[in-house]
């Protein structure tokens, strides 16, 4: 079953066409990497999938629902229920502690539950640091916290934008380990990256170039689940 389907999606900013006719489907439980150089349109694509932008043309079906014609408020609701976002710059709220940063996502979703938030922190190995403020955490810890926040509402789709872009090698492998674990548990993961090394962990990789998707069959030789 496909969790996500894109049909002929284009994105046009004024004169610039950031994305052209992207057609893509992602199965439930799949780990997909989107690769491309800077300016290839991968962030634009991620914003469309993550319900943060609407496509100019084409249709986007997320979990069986066509989201391409929804208004901003409905998009927020969908994002809240179905998507967990992980950012390169972590984007934590500076004045909330680690556990509160997780809880705020619960709060916007439905109900803040400290016990559950602590479990999510434990899952990424941060239970000892629950009462620390983001600036007291290292980069790797901040990213793990960001992942814990993304997972807390059991999203249908985990969307990560260069999750290891600001991390050193040790932290990168810690984060990737968590991704593998999530994948094994059946989560659907989409990682946007320019690093082939990170992309290599994914089950499937697509490439973007000047807003076009290169034939993803060309990458079929990458064996599925090569990293597990």
């Amino acid at each position: 079953m496909n969790i996500l389907e894109l049909h002929d999606v284009s994105m046009i900013y004024g004169q610039v066409q950031a994305l052209r006719d992207i057609t893509l489907s992602v199965r439930q439980g799949e780990w997909l990497a989107i690769m491309g150089a800077s300016g290839s349109g991968k962030t634009t694509l991620m914003n469309i999938i993550g319900c943060m932008n609407k496509a100019s043309l084409g249709s986007v079906i997320l979990d069986g629902e066509n989201i391409s014609r929804l208004n901003a408020g409905d998009l927020t609701a969908i994002r809240r229920d179905k998507i967990g976002l992980i950012f390169q710059q972590f984007h934590l709220i500076s004045y909330l502690t680690a556990v509160e940063n997780v809880m705020i996502a619960q709060y916007y979703h439905s109900m803040a539950d400290e016990k559950e938030a602590m479990q999510a922190l434990a899952r990424v190995g941060l239970e000892q640091r629950a009462r620390h403020l983001p600036r007291q955490l290292s980069g790797g810890e901040q990213q793990r916290l960001c992942i814990a926040r993304a997972l807390i509402n059991y999203p249908k789709l985990i969307l990560a934008d260069e999750p290891t872009g600001n991390l050193d090698e040790t932290n990168q492998s810690t984060v990737l380990d968590i991704f593998h674990q999530l994948h094994a548990e059946g989560s659907t993961i989409i990682v946007v990256t320019h690093s082939p090394e990170v992309a290599a962990h994914a089950g499937r990789t697509i490439r973007l170039e000047f807003g076009r998707m290169l034939d993803d069959s060309a990458w079929k030789e990458t064996p599925p689940d090569s990293g597990s």
């Binding site: 408020g73 609701a77 994002r79 809240r80 976002l85 709220i93 996502a105 979703h109 926040r149």
Partner: peptide, 16 residues
């Protein structure tokens, strides 16, 4: 502004 954007990204409605 950035904080507001982030909160929206993790699912906060305008009202919240």
């Amino acid at each position: 502004r950035r904080e507001i954007g982030l909160k929206k990204a993790i699912g906060a409605g305008n009202r919240a």
